[in-house]
Design a protein around this nucleic acid. Structure first.
Lengths: 341, 341
DNA sequence: CTGAAAGCGCTTACAG
DNA sequence: CTGAAAGCGCTTACAG
């Protein structure tokens, strides 16, 4: 066992009270006393038991994340970048992160457990998990929660989301300005809020340009290389194939480019591509040839900010914080060009 | 605040002792009593405070991982797959995972804190972090640690590693059998044990075939797309460029293929490629055209097994468990062919 | 500036 | 089969 406060205090001939105060930086401790305590603690390699501290203070100094072992296993690079962002804030604030791995369908239980067990001070959830959990009564707990992404069912949970609608509308407008009138979209899973918003963004841009929406040029699925590849092949088989493609991730765009290459179509001469770029370190748009025109948002920055929002909720005693919707700028590179026909 | 044991016991007219025993499945509780308790707990949404339980039992029911915010940010897909594996075991055993984000150089501190604070029952470390930490005296703590990868400095920590030497020797032999005599290698960072083992594996295969080792055909760096791209360009500029390439990851191989395409070299006709495949979900070898011949090992399975090893150490009261070295099979696909010259 | 004592919410010998 | 009580290792009013 590691040394305890009691032992440390005894070895110094001081009370636990004084030693505790010295260690925690309370002002009412004498300077020499503090120094003595700090040195002894250092020497004895003393570390306060977090369990005891939690029990005594009621504060856990940790953020909880619920992480599904099965769900979205193919989107892990994104999860990891998000986690990195959360970690940055956590490291700065000296917080731990408690990951609760769960099987699909058990998310609600895991959230309830984290919220009621005192393990963590706040919960950071992705909106799909929040949607999963909404009937569990976790909202009644008045436990601080912050979500990543717009919750589908309008829960009153503060969230941070990028402007998926505005971003994809902007991306589509860029293509329309280049003369494209048939625009395909390889999107995320249809039930996800972000995917719906992206479809609507494309639709709005088409509406404003007086172009009919073409549902048959849209595909949905998990954001993988394979989705990009297969969806593109299938879109190319439509009676009126598009001359431009919107891809919901760089990985999807890479899959699309493989399909285009197989069909002998060149980018951007025969097909323009705009990809959403989450700025995931593993998939820089420079991986593609030509480099991709992208809609940008840093998933990592979002994670860092969400952790801050959680801290604000904790600090304010659980008062709601304002949700944020981040703009999604367009970066034009080499994968978009004027339409030929 | 959530309901406490005390309140729950009072509402049932039972003692805390009995309620606690009923909840924890102790045998000496009457059947009807147990049922009553379980129902009441369910209704009150009771969850034992983990902090209190930890303090009382001394067991944390959690695994600690130290995770560097800055280091290897480009290898996140791998970290995430490893984490997924750890999570699988953790979910099955009902453990939490405590991630301690740290800045580079602060790993030792983070490990000591985790080990001495009672937050976790065991530590799962990657060998680079273990190497970082070896002077901190953490080994003296008799705290259960299990490492991923062979520790460089021969610490007596149980570890799980794949057979990097044997795998790359096998990969090189495959190329030699196809008639290749000049084999390039784009490897991980030179100071890492796995990278050294891979270089030695290639060297051993060359030695056995009576071919001189060519240091100038080897490059080291972080396992990124960019490394594969730039290293390959630079290897091609050597006076005697290779006819085959060993790549330390699929991502690196993708970068290499971009470089080859730019130089007008075809795979496998002009250049054979064998890539190490960590079976990271984000980078299936099918992403490449042609599909890559690979050396396979599942980083996810390794994570799951390492968590089990940690549990075995905990269960045995900290006794060391046997280290494991996993074989690395070769899967031949379309990126290797006979040498022309 | 320092200390004695209560309390955080559990578990678990010990006694019955 | 059930309960009263001690103890896990801290923090923090309260008193001096």
């Amino acid at each position: 066992m590691a040394t305890s406060l009691k032992e440390l205090a005894a070895s110094l001939g001081l009370s636990q009270t004084t030693v505790s105060r010295a260690l925690n930086g309370y002002p009412e401790v004498g300077e020499k006393t503090r120094r003595r305590v700090l040195e002894a603690a250092e020497r004895a390699n003393y570390r306060a038991s977090t369990a005891a501290r939690r029990l005594a203070t009621g504060r856990a100094n940790a953020l909880g994340l619920v992480f599904s072992t099965e769900r979205n296993i193919l989107e892990r690079p994104i999860v990891m970048d998000f986690l990195t962002g959360v970690s940055e804030t956590a490291a700065r604030e000296g917080l731990d992160i408690v990951l609760t791995p769960t099987r699909a369908g058990e998310e609600a239980d895991a959230c309830m457990r984290l919220a009621t067990s005192g393990l963590v001070d706040a919960l950071v959830l992705t909106s799909p998990i929040l949607d999963e959990v909404r009937t569990s009564g976790i909202a009644d707990l008045a436990f601080p929660i912050v979500a990543h992404g717009r919750p589908l069912h309008g829960q009153s949970v503060p969230y941070l989301s990028i402007d998926n609608f505005g971003g994809f509308k902007r991306g589509a407008q860029h293509l329309i300005e280049l003369g494209h009138r048939r625009i395909g979209l390889v999107n995320g899973e249809a039930r996800q809020a972000y995917a719906q918003d992206r479809t609507e963004g494309l639709g709005a841009a088409l509406d404003e340009a007086g172009i009919a929406r073409a549902q048959n040029l849209i595909r949905y699925g998990p954001l993988t290389f394979t989705l990009g590849y297969q969806s593109t092949l299938s879109i190319l088989d439509e009676p009126q194939p598009p001359t431009a493609l919107l891809a919901s991730s760089v990985l999807v765009a890479l899959g699309a480019m493989k399909a285009l290459a197989e069909r002998g179509l060149r980018v951007p001469q025969d097909m323009s591509i705009v990809a959403h770029d989450d700025e995931v370190a593993a998939f820089p748009p420079s991986m593609a040839t030509p480099q991709l025109t992208t809609l940008n948002s840093s998933i990592r920055a979002a994670g860092a900010r969400i952790a801050e929002m959680a801290l604000e909720r904790i600090a304010s005693g659980g008062a709601p914080v304002a949700s944020e919707v981040w703009p999604v700028p367009l970066t034009i590179r080499g994968s978009t060009a004027e339409a030929l026909d």
